[in-house]
Amino acid sequence: MSLSATGKAPTYGALLLRGLLAGLIAGLLAGVFAYTVGEPKVDAAIAIEEANAHAAGAAADGHHDEELVGRDGQKGGLFLATGLYGAAMGGLLATAYTVLRRRLRTTSDTRAALGLAGAALLGIVLVPYLKYPPNPPAVGNPDTINQRTISYLAIVVIGLVAVWAGVIAARTQPAEWRQALAAAAGFLIVVAVGYLLLPAIDEVPDTFPATLLWNFRIASLGTQAVMWSALGLGFAALATRPVREQAAREAVTV
């Protein structure tokens, strides 16, 4: 794992390992947040869902009714889900960092890593979040799941394109304040077009408690915020360390 000894740039493999590790840790931290803040809301929503199912004579076509995995199992599985997802995002972040680092106009590796993580948070979390806010169990019509999944994937892609458009637009401008303005304009135009083109989805039943929905959505946003902050900071720390050590060694020998 220690590559700085060779006096060369870290390999892609080394950066990837660091990304996967930072991602796994970030995912587990996000899991801890989701477990403590989010699970009580999921439990409350499932209680409503089950009450509804009973009231409807238990038509029993929802997948929760199969009890393939009990509630305790699902709460443990939460950590598997966030851990795997975090590791995957860490792998993608490390890959983006490796491929794009030389194109980013900063001399700071830490800024480059944090900038990429921030761009990901904006593009694949915040842009989708505002168009299709996450829903707890008992919200959502099972018949529209395919349509909702496709729309969700589309808005994730649009979010990434919007970030990219913002960067491209900024680079057309010489002055800093005009760069910021161009970035915002490029980003917002793509987001606005995406929001207008994609169908609106609102499947919240009238009877679903508004405060529970609000609290669940905050918990979900917090989960992603923990995930990407921890991933960005963790990867920045791990990926720049061998370089810093090498710099220190060279400074001594010179």
Binding site: A34, G38, V42, H64, L78, A81, T82, V125, Q224
Partner: peptide, 16 residues
């Protein structure tokens, strides 16, 4: 799918 159910909801992915 069932094991990771809560993770899906809390990560904001459409589930069911």
């Amino acid at each position: 799918h069932e094991l990771m159910h809560d993770g899906r909801h809390l990560l904001g992915v459409p589930c069911h």
